[in-house]
Design a protein around this nucleic acid. Structure first.
Lengths: 126, 126
DNA sequence: TCTTCATATGAGCAAACGTTCACATGAAAG
DNA sequence: CTTTCATGTGAACGTTTGCTCATATGAAGA
């Protein structure tokens, strides 16, 4: 997808300002680094988990599919806020939905979501 | 740590605005959700990975310890920018450092960093 | 001590984010 | 068709973010 993520100004730093202590290592690493596009996408993915509201939504969806109203009530959020966040999660392919009459049920759309959050938990819990 | 993360206004939504389709499920989920504090910390952790500059820095540190100048040159960033980001990573206990004369070498301080990024990669690469 | 070199840090700015508010959309019931 | 109800969406707003610039810190060498 490669959305520009956060294309701040980021002009090249002044020429010859600071030296590398290990030019050889730097040169080798430059080869091995994944493409910028991939790293942008990666950051974009992590950004989905970088807000506690979205974390809560994902956490809630661990156990069962839920509609917007369910989530809003559970997390004490406005319907609008939940809907906005679900759109982001949907775009990032972390969440999918299913229509049933007027109600739309959301559920997790990626096996990695659980392991991702579980892994983060390990760090948080020291 | 429980930094307030992004304590936006987030006032409670208007009373009785929207209904839950599954009140029973909502009630049960409310019990099971981890504490707000934990979820804040979790989001804070993910926020460290939510910027491609920081991802690049962490990626670079996969292979060997590096000083600020190394990283700046490798990633074409200003010394100041790298230093600012390293401070964040340091505060989040993702990175540690070691002084050698005037040079300060940074390295990964958490086993989860690699698996975290690897897991994210799996999602990005479809 | 006085420089020099590597790094740290505070202020300021422009961009991006998450929420709210108001309204649009679209399906079902009458 | 009209109303109702669940959800979607655009604009506005205040906050946060990541960068730059200028300067501070602190170690090593002259």
């Amino acid at each position: 997808m490669a959305t520009p993520e956060t294309p701040r100004t980021n002009s090249a730093p002044a020429e010859g300002e600071f030296l590398a202590a290990q030019p050889d290592v730097v040169a080798r690493l430059r080869e091995d680094l994944p493409d910028d596009e991939v790293l942008y996408d990666l950051a974009e993915l992590f950004r989905m988990f970088a807000d506690s509201t979205r974390i809560k939504i994902l956490y809630a969806l661990f156990e069962s599919e839920l509609c917007v109203g369910d989530i809003a009530q559970l997390l004490n959020l406005s319907q609008s806020s939940v809907s906005h966040q679900l759109r982001l999660l949907k775009n990032s392919k972390l969440v999918k939905f299913r229509r049933e009459g007027k109600v739309i049920f959301y559920s997790l759309d990626d096996d990695h979501v659980r392991s991702m959050i579980a892994l983060g938990m390990e760090h948080v819990e020291e």
